[in-house]
Design a protein around this nucleic acid. Structure first.
Lengths: 102, 102
DNA sequence: CGAATAGTTAAGCAATGAATTAACTATCCG
DNA sequence: CGGATAGTTAATTCATTGCTTAACTATTCG
């Protein structure tokens, strides 16, 4: 949970997730889409992996990464949903604030 | 968007959001619930406010904070939903990964 | 085997984040 | 007005993040 939010705090890492959402990619293929060095990318991938958001699979020379399917849903999504119980079309008037001190 | 994810990267700030989800609180009332100093809290509140997640309202001596209703839904929630298009009971077999290289 | 390609690990450095204390502003109330 | 309470701003310090280059491991293929 903690690690997931830290992982998502970086724009680069959110972009990586967006790329992997289209399908798996090797580390090199991801690196091509960014300006920084391979070690930098390797670090980002490690952080995303340790957050449980992506997984790796070595095939020959290459290491392919893909999203771990329900991980986001079970962490961020679930957390946000708990704090933001919005089901319908976001009716504003149904969300009156609770006054703790009258 | 960027600022929202940065704001959520801190456990303390997520806790603050959870507290405010129960209803508004003054800065001091929030401070009581944590161990760090008031300036530290003030900083966290500023970050959450600049991310658009909370809003402040001065009433007399006190400054009350409350959640900005749909902000989470319109940022994190929406972002996660786009990356994680899960509608139903998370059927695993419907989420086969796309293979980019056959 | 040995060169080439793919990727990670290690070490070093700049920049950012987050906490503290001290000082300042704002509001209430006697 | 002036003291007390509530909170923010400023200056400083310290730890963490994130990048780079260099060196290392793993795998392919001639």
């Amino acid at each position: 949970m903690e690690k997931v939010f830290e992982a998502l705090a970086s724009t680069a890492r959110r972009k990586i997730l967006a790329y992997l959402n289209q399908g798996e990619l090797s580390a090199g293929e991801i690196a091509e889409r960014f300006d920084f060095s391979k070690p930098a990318l390797s670090g980002h991938l490690r952080i995303l992996e340790q957050a449980g958001l992506i997984a790796r699979e070595r095939r020959g020379q290459f290491v392919y990464f893909h999203l771990v399917p329900d991980r986001l849903a079970n962490t961020v999504f679930a957390w946000a949903a708990e704090l933001c119980p919005v089901a319908g079309p976001l009716k504003r008037e149904s969300r009156a604030r609770v006054r703790s001190k009258t």
